[in-house]
């Protein structure tokens, strides 16, 4: 029970663990007084992630429905259950009905977007998410989701815009920098390439062992060199960056004890440092 409480507080998504705890201590959960309802909700959402957890799900929902017959929150859970079963239309009907009562409810609006994503209807999800962001324009998790959708549809310009919003919200997260640099890199162009290089470097500064950023930095600096960099650019620095990132990568693989064949392959993938 203590562990459930802890997970509830930290919002960790350890669904397997939660369902396992619930199965073992079902009677303890049911006997935990008013705290029970929070646990049931938690167990229910966790069981959505799990296959073969229909029994737990059903029990949770039944108990909750019995206690709170007209609750929005329980309705939402029920609709999430439909979503998990792939009955998207049923879920959408419930959400639409709830939105009529409360058209600004962010949780329901997000659930609807999740339905679209679940149905693999990405264009619709993008439109819906944009509408949502018009209202809640500082919800950076939504911006993050939109970024993913845009990257899925190869719309890199918009993805970059969304990523900028995400970066504004938290300028100390190396993942955002790295992703942003990748998007810049993928869009190409000499100026963007330089920017990409800087953002990769920034990401590395925040997390020195990120192989993803090291690869990015290596490629971006190699690219900016071959592109015939401008006179103002410090050629030596860029070369240093390229070679340095290569060394770092090799060292990182060594340190992590990677597969020897991978280690042997690595130098051939990376751009040589002997030239220039």
């Amino acid at each position: 029970m203590e562990e459930l409480r802890e997970l509830q507080r930290s919002h960790e998504r350890k669904s397997m663990r939660i369902v396992a705890i619930a199965r073992q201590n079902w009677s303890a959960v049911m006997g935990s007084g008013d705290e029970k309802w929070g646990f049931l909700e938690q167990i229910f959402t966790a069981s959505l992630d799990m296959p073969n957890a229909e029994d737990v799900r059903k029990r949770c929902l039944q108990a909750l429905e019995k206690r709170f017959p007209n609750s929005q929150r329980v309705q939402r859970l029920q609709a999430m259950g439909f979503e998990a079963d792939g009955q998207f239309q049923k879920a959408l009907d419930i959400y639409n009905e709830m939105l009529e009562a409360d058209p600004l409810n962010p949780a329901i609006l997000k659930r609807k977007i999740a339905v679209h994503i679940g149905k693999d209807d990405i264009p619709l999800a993008i439109t819906a998410l944009n509408k949502y962001l018009e209202l809640y324009s500082s919800d950076f998790e939504a911006w993050q989701q939109l970024t993913d959708l845009y990257i899925d549809t190869q719309d890199l310009q918009n993805a970059a815009f969304c990523l900028e919003e995400v970066m504004l919200s938290n300028p100390h997260n190396h993942v955002y920098y790295c992703t942003y640099a990748e998007v810049l890199f993928a869009r190409g162009g000499s100026e963007r390439m330089t920017q990409a290089r800087r953002y990769f470097a920034k990401a590395l500064e925040l997390n020195p062992t990120s192989a993803r950023a090291l690869y990015g930095l290596h490629l971006a600096s190699a690219r900016t060199m071959t592109k015939g960099s401008k006179a103002s650019e410090d050629v030596a620095t860029v070369a240093d960056l390229r070679d340095g990132s290569k060394e770092q990568l090799l060292a990182l693989y060594e340190e992590q004890g990677a597969n020897p064949t991978h280690q042997a392959l690595l130098p051939s993938v990376l751009v040589g440092s002997g030239k220039q």
């Binding site: 209202l135 815009f161 900028e164 970066m167 504004l168």
Partner: peptide, 29 residues
């Protein structure tokens, strides 16, 4: 929730973030 109030707080918060962290974005952005 009032739609106007909601949009106002969100908008202002976004502008504030831009001022605070804008230097991490490229100039064009």
């Amino acid at each position: 929730l009032d739609r106007d109030v909601l949009m106002r707080t969100q908008l202002l918060q976004r502008a504030r973030l831009l001022r605070a962290n804008g230097r991490f974005l490229p100039a064009a952005a």
